[in-house]
């Protein structure tokens, strides 16, 4: 399927528009989810219940006309409940054999709701699928459908009885997107849309193949060496031991972002450029996507937690500290 920057932008705009028919406001959330999808990554949404996370992913599935799967993570959820398992079946001759029964992860769009409530073992099963795009059961590898996109959610308030994701697993999420509480105007619109007789529905404007073509085009966007260098400097500066790290990083950061963070920034910036109608990545694209790409990849120390310093604050300081330099 041929994809041009113009059709890319038009399709993305159509997707956002259709989602916007159902989801009120939350443009940043929708844009973040869309960028993650087009980059071939997975997103971690953090927000209190009832903000439309599930509605968003379901709507996205409707707009893309792809298969949707939902997994509610609980402490007793087993890996097989996620990936699927072999069950004994009989053929027409009465012979028994093992048949693989795919789990809910075998879908194009998967909602992993409250992922931090499952045990680490179950979390690992999901995260392996996210990374490898395959599931191995009984030494048999099962390939997940393409496109494959996991939208995991976690509740920042209820921490009791949860298993916070370890840093290595957090690093596998392309973006971590905060879901803000809607504004008054958005709440009014939500009330208007959801309490009336008619329920708004989104139309399918793309399909899986279109998404895959968009993913391929996004990787072709050129990026200047100066911008690449800027991203590298930015990622290095998240490390407290780096010479260019600002004082705030040295004081509050325990560990910095990995190279995956840099890859996420660049890919997201490329998509941002295409969405903006450009054929190249700009510094502004990098700065626009730095926060969701880095916030879950920066580990804060106890002092930061005690003083209420968030990783978003750190990224903001970094962006302020590291400005593109071009003075000649």
């Amino acid at each position: 399927m041929s994809m041009t920057p113009e059709t890319f932008r038009a399709t993305a705009t159509a997707i956002e528009r259709e989602i916007g028919r159902v989801i009120v406001g939350q443009q940043a959330l929708i844009r973040g989810v869309l960028i993650t999808l087009l980059a071939g990554g997975n997103a971690l949404l953090e927000g209190v219940p009832g903000l439309g996370k599930t509605m968003l992913i379901r709507t996205l599935a409707d707009v893309l006309d792809v298969q949707f799967g939902r997994i509610q993570f609980t402490p007793d959820l087993m890996p097989a409940d996620v990936t699927g398992t072999n069950i004994i079946a009989e053929d027409e001759h009465g012979r028994r054999f093992f048949r693989f029964e795919p789990g809910p992860i075998f879908a194009n769009l998967v909602l992993a709701d409250e992922i931090n409530r499952a045990t680490p073992k179950t979390q690992s099963a999901l995260l392996e699928a996210m990374q490898e795009r395959t599931v191995t059961v009984a030494r048999q590898i099962h390939t997940l459908p393409q496109p494959f996109f996991v939208l995991a959610t976690q509740n920042p308030l209820e921490m009791e009885g949860t298993y916070p994701l370890p840093e290595a697993q957090l690093d596998r999420f392309f973006f971590k997107i905060d879901v803000p509480f809607p504004s008054v105007e958005d709440l009014v619109e939500i009330a208007r849309r959801t309490t009336g007789a008619a329920t708004p529905r989104a139309q399918a404007v793309a399909d899986g193949a279109t998404v895959l073509a968009m993913q391929a085009l996004a990787r072709e966007v050129p990026i200047a060496d100066a911008v690449l260098t800027y991203v590298a400097r930015l990622v290095r500066a998240t490390h407290p031991t780096d010479e260019a790290a600002p004082d705030m990083v040295r004081r509050y950061v325990r560990y910095g972002a990995s190279p995956r963070g840099m890859q996420a920034i660049i890919l997201a910036a490329k998509i941002t450029a295409l969405l903006d109608g450009r054929f190249n990545v700009a510094f502004d694209d990098v700065r626009a996507v730095a926060t969701p790409a880095l916030r879950h990849r920066i580990g804060l120390n106890f002092e930061a937690l005690a003083e209420g310093v968030s990783s978003d604050d750190i990224v903001a300081v970094l962006l302020d500290h590291l400005q593109p330099q071009a003075e000649v």
């Binding site: 990026i223 200047a224 060496d225 911008v227 450029a273 054929f279 190249n280 510094f283 502004d284």
Partner: peptide, 9 residues
């Protein structure tokens, strides 16, 4: 938006 730099690269 770094158009010129990218083009030169």
């Amino acid at each position: 938006k770094e158009r010129l730099t990218t083009a030169l690269d």
